[in-house]
Design a protein around this nucleic acid. Structure first.
Length: 569
RNA sequence: CGGGGUGUGGCGCAGUCGGCGAGCGCGCUGCGUUUGGGACGCAGAGGUCGUCGGUUCAAGUCCGACCACCCCGACCA
């Protein structure tokens, strides 16, 4: 590619909306441009980076026998109904009512962030026999990301180019093996880019795992064990704390607690630790805007509720805090609530509360709490379960070492759907004995734009980006010095052709610019090699080659350049 | 959710005690001089001053609402 032909412009100063060095270089170098919070234009140079990554990912997919397919971005509302049930637990619901096409007033089109429901329908139609399994389908597309944080730039954009893959298997073990293999190959890819990554459990039931790039400001929280490397999403990690010493149940007693509407206030008033309190959360489960169930979730005061755990337990996707009126309707008192004496709601009690005696809980009377509240004696539960959020310092489920809380950016996720769901959607095949069996579905996603952005944050210096070779938009920055008409141009033109014919991807800076401009741009863009054709060297039959990563500069005889470059990449 | 800040050509900013033609740097166009680490001169193009409403003879400037983005905080029952 000749730079003079390319839509390309570098900037001395990038937009200051997000102060991340890698992101700034991506903008300054003419890779991407921000449209408005969370939406990005990929300029030709940025598209080349995407293309490199896409090539590698497609190659991996083909190695597993994958076949590329094309899927629609817009889907009718009826197709994606129930989507929440089949996406990963923390994925946002599809963007409802995104589009309604004129002339079809009765039909609402949506822009869902994945294609699970569609793939189930496809599998139902196409897969009938065990002979067709396994199948791996994949596609690249720009997926909407409702749960974005624009402050992270490309690391969490409103949409991201992704690789989505769906695999269909006859048995679960086969599927799980592929999931892990895919995740391993992605982890290897990150390693090739010198990026540390963790494999983090995303779902204990579905064998889902994420690829997380640890980064202090990341929006994904996970717990990791330094001893055995077990790692899990914070929202679903099983809580394991030291069991409190057993105590004899003391008599229930009401105590005045003025202005103690929060656990913190209550604890300082009574001079007790939060672990001696029970926190009651009043929630409402809704479906289609209609109130379905009132739920009181009880967790110990030193923990927080994991909404995801509770949603899964209840099988409800819509759960919101109750309003004060709704709380009073149940006979409880906001700020002083507890399930004691309340009968009109389902009660879900966290396991820790079950095993903790003589806790302080709300008296359902403004300004009063109850001392020595004990589960079983003073109130009952519809369910008891682990519904609390795990915290740093909790014990590793596999080796009991205290866990660390870390943050990161999710680069990929693999997982499956439970057989019951496949049954429910009638996605079945006939096994060799003619018996209907549920098809096992695996779904896998790799966030390409985040990966590119993370690489940018990881690989740069004071002058600009430093791409790993496999991701670099081009291999070589070939540039001339002096006037375009002078003899160096002939040498450069020849080298450009020779390198190109040798399969080297060359970005040829043939612009009529001063040397300094070209040098600065070369450093900013960060291609692995820079080849400089200057009058002085050419007179001696040489050109100068520089490695971007090390800064090493060598002179190479013109006839040897192609060989040298190929060896250096 | 709370607090603070910002919004003016493609990018970075100034202008904000209301008052002639809305400016500067970078970038862009043309001509000339330059040419091994972001050159210089001259001449140009380019702006609904976030949106809507209000006050006024007069609003980028004052008032109100809204929107968007950034930073910090906290986050709860």
């Amino acid at each position: 590619m000749r730079l003079s032909q390319m839509l390309f412009q570098t900037m001395r100063q990038a937009s200051t909306d997000i102060m991340l060095p890698g992101y700034q270089y991506l903008q300054r170098g003419g890779f991407v441009r921000s449209v408005s919070g969370g939406a990005y234009v990929f300029l030709p140079l940025g598209v080349q980076v995407r293309r490199q990554l896409q090539r590698v990912l497609a190659h991996l997919m083909e190695e597993w026998g994958g076949q590329e397919i094309g899927l629609p971005a817009l889907q009718p509302l009826e197709v994606i109904e129930g989507q929440a049930e089949v996406t990963f637990p923390d994925w946002a619901a599809p963007l409802q009512h995104a589009v309604s096409c004129g002339g079809e007033g009765y039909r609402t089109w949506t822009l869902p962030s994945s294609h699970e429901q569609l793939m189930l329908a496809l599998a139902r139609n196409i897969i009938q026999s065990y002979r067709q399994l396994p199948v791996l389908l994949y596609l690249f597309w720009q997926a909407p990301e409702p749960a974005m944080r624009t402050a992270l730039g490309l690391l969490a954009g409103r949409e991201s180019m992704v690789l989505d893959a769906y695999s269909f298997h006859s048995d679960e073990a086969d599927r799980n093996t592929l999931c892990q293999s895919i995740l391993t190959s992605w982890a290897d890819l990150a390693e090739r880019a010198d990026m540390p990554v963790h494999r983090v459990i995303a779902d204990l039931d579905d064998e889902a795992s994420r690829l997380i790039w640890p980064w202090r400001d990341g929006d994904h929280s996970f717990l990791i064990c330094d001893a055995c490397r077990w790692a899990c999403d914070q929202a679903i990690a099983p809580v394991r704390k030291p069991v409190p010493p057993a105590e004899a149940a003391q008599p229930l007693r009401e105590v005045a607690t003025p202005d103690c509407k929060t656990i913190a206030a209550l604890c300082s008033w009574l001079r007790i630790p939060p672990s001696r309190t029970a926190k009651s959360l009043f929630l409402v489960a809704e479906e289609g805007g209609a109130v379905k169930r009132h739920v009181i979730a009880v967790v110990r005061g030193d923990t927080e509720l994991s909404v995801i755990k509770l949603k899964r337990l209840l099988g409800m996707s819509g759960l919101r805090p109750a309003t004060e009126e709704e709380i009073r309707t149940l006979g409880a008192e906001p700020g002083y609530g507890s399930p004691v004496g309340i009968s009109a709601a389902e009660v879900v009690v966290d396991q820790l509360v079950v095993h903790s005696s003589n806790l302080v809980a709300g008296a359902n009377r403004a300004g009063y709490h109850l001392l020595n509240v004990n589960y079983g004696r003073d109130y009952q539960a519809t369910y008891t379960a682990d519904i609390a959020m795990a915290q740093a310092g909790d014990l590793c489920p596999s080796c009991a070492t205290p866990l660390q809380l870390e943050h990161g950016i999710e680069l990929g996720i693999v997982g499956g759907l439970r057989p019951e769901i496949m049954q429910a959607h009638h996605v079945i095949y006939l096994d060799p004995s003619g018996i209907p069996q549920p098809v096992m579905l695996g779904r896998h996603r790799f966030y390409m734009d985040r990966f590119i952005a993370a690489t940018g944050e990881t690989h740069h210096d004071a002058m600009g980006l430093i791409w790993p070779t496999f991701l670099a938009p081009y291999d070589v920055y070939l540039m001339t010095l002096g006037r375009p008409s002078s003899p160096v141009s002939e040498v450069a033109d020849t080298l450009y052709t020779e390198l190109h014919n040798a399969g080297v991807r060359v970005l040829y800076d043939d612009r009529d610019e001063r040397a300094g401009v070209k040098f600065y741009d070369a450093d900013l863009i960060g291609l692995p090699l820079r080849v400089v054709i200057g009058e002085r060297d050419v007179a001696e039959g040489m050109v100068e080659v520089k490695r971007r990563c090390s800064g090493e500069v060598v002179k190479v005889a013109i006839p040897d350049v192609v060989t040298w470059v190929k060896g250096a990449l």
